[in-house]
Design a protein around this nucleic acid. Sequence first.
RNA 1: GCCGACUUAGCACAGUGGUAGUGCAACGGUUUUGUAAACCGUAGGUCGGGGGUUCGAAUCCCUCAGUCGGCACCA
Length: 650
Amino acid sequence: MPVITLPDGKQKQFDSPVSVAEIAASIGPGLAKAALAGRVDGKLVDTSFSVEHDATVSIVTEKDQDGLEILRHSTAHLLANAVQELFPDAQVTIGPVIEDGFFYDFAYRRPFSTEDLAAIEQRMAEISAKDLPVHRRVLPRDEAIAHFKNIGEHYKAEIIGAIPAGESISLYGQGSWEDLCRGPHVPSTGKLKAFKLMKVAGAYWRGDSRNEMLQRIYGTAWATEKQLKEYLKRLEEAEKRDHRRIGRELDLFHLQEEAPGAVFWHPKGWALFQSLVGYIRQRQGEAGYQEINTPQIMDRELWIQSGHIEKFGENMFMTKTPDERTFAIKPMNCPGHVQVFKQGLRSYRELPLRLAEFGKVHRYEPSGALHGLMRVRAFTQDDAHIFCTMEQVTAESVAVTQLILSIYRDFGFDDVRIKFSDRPAKRVGSDEIWDKAERALQDACAAAAIETELNPGEGAFYGPKLEFVLRDAIGRDWQCGTLQVDLNLPERLGASYIAEDSQRHIPVMLHRAMLGSLERFIGILIEHHAGKLPLWLAPVQAVVMGITERQDEYCAEVTENLKNQGLRVETDLRNEKVGFKIREHTIKRVPYLLVAGDREVEARTLAVRTRSGKDLGAVELNELAALLTEEVAGRGRIILEDRLSQRRSA
RNA sequence: GCCGACUUAGCACAGUGGUAGUGCAACGGUUUUGUAAACCGUAGGUCGGGGGUUCGAAUCCCUCAGUCGGCACCA
């Protein structure tokens, strides 16, 4: 006699056990049709699930996030079903839901081609059109293993083998096709209408590069055709924000074959780069850091001491000199900074000592990892190491975290994900030291009141870390800022200070980078703003253009004037129509286009047009300079356009 | 590094065994122009590198490199 409580608080009593589908039907036929699954006392179940006791029940439809995920998961099954119909000797492995879609990994004797993909998608549509009911059955674990071995599904058998003995295994399927799955799934294949297979790629079995490579098929699935179209449109738009494309269009940088993973910065790109350096230099200077510079190439010995050779030797650039010494091109700055710390006898009174460097590092990254500015072999870190006592760790970590978040806000990143990465399998230092370091970093997170996601086993080999993660245009995550608590390297590299007790103590070293890699950060910045960099960062902030030769002299004078006030301004006196010049500089994302005709020369004004196409009318030269300077100083929080309309309405 | 695709003029692309093309950009000239493309003309390519098959290769085969999409890696 179950009593069912619905989300609106209403209760319904049934005489006998009742399925989720029946509950939906008792509420209304529309809901019965829309039902994809149910949530019974918080647990997701199939619509066929029978509720036998009093419970809170809600009906999951495509409007729920959970409903959408079930839809995607069922579409992954639909994919596997289609693949095995077309390629009967392909074995299934795993097929999870991911952001915006799903994938499924198959073991097959050859890679799938794009033609295969089209055929598979076609078959999926056919199975969907048949609207086959999705069925479920349960087998004891050992029986399930035997069953999958028997039908030649060795990967599935291996997966089930990892499930504790004695547990039951659920199998889901449609028609004669079946797969191991926890569920829940949609009630019938007809619910799966809006999907598309996106790409094929190789992927290692169990994510381990020592294993064989499987064939992964990626797909996307949505509740409606319209949502699918919107998603595809979004992807198309995101492609236009690609930093590699914008980098070329705006003449910021290039890469070429002779220097894989190394950037050739052009004047405009370098101007942007230098803006970032200048800004960080200012912010960290105010925060009590001292800037240093350390050698690019140092004896290999130092990297043996630090442990980098052992862990990353394969990824380091080495060079042997005629005198038979082997040097390493620095892959990071820490050992250099420790050498600076080690000069002379240090006192506890000097701590915390914050040493910063815009250090260019080289890492021989695997060829397949290279990606535009995001993953390169030569890059510049806004690196710093804070030498401090254990007692100072929390306060310093909180300060670093707050500084990073404040800086990110200036760049327009208000929503930053922070990951907490704890001890990796391959590491240096005792477990006691790791316990201490992880606790210190956790305390700091609590004190800074930041929320973090756990990233298990992803810490540096010498200490746990916080990762400040930003997202590119198509949703890929990239680590930018980082903060690491290191109780290992100072000792390995022989750093110490004299404490109040007159004894030598080993300092704690905090590693921190705020932008991380300047190259990567610029990549993210370009994609985030689609190339329309805020005024304070734009390589060219304004272009002054005349309408005829008569304004040439005035234009030159205005440009000179604005340049003298520290603005990055160019003149365009080419023999072209003003419409042509406007078009060109708009495409180049120049924030302000300043047009001078006879009227403007006469009144000593400039007609101001924004890159978004707004004509702000004539502005007096001195007022314009003041407004531009103000917008730069405000780092985008004060916009010339708003100021102008304020003044005009006042 | 692994799987797959791709590499033709500065950029975007066409060209499936028989004399390398189009658009934009570039350069020269005319035009002196009022807010997203004036007009005319000129030049530009060992078809990623190397090797092979063929009477003949951008095109077919091998190999190396780079790029792209994933995987693995990421101090």
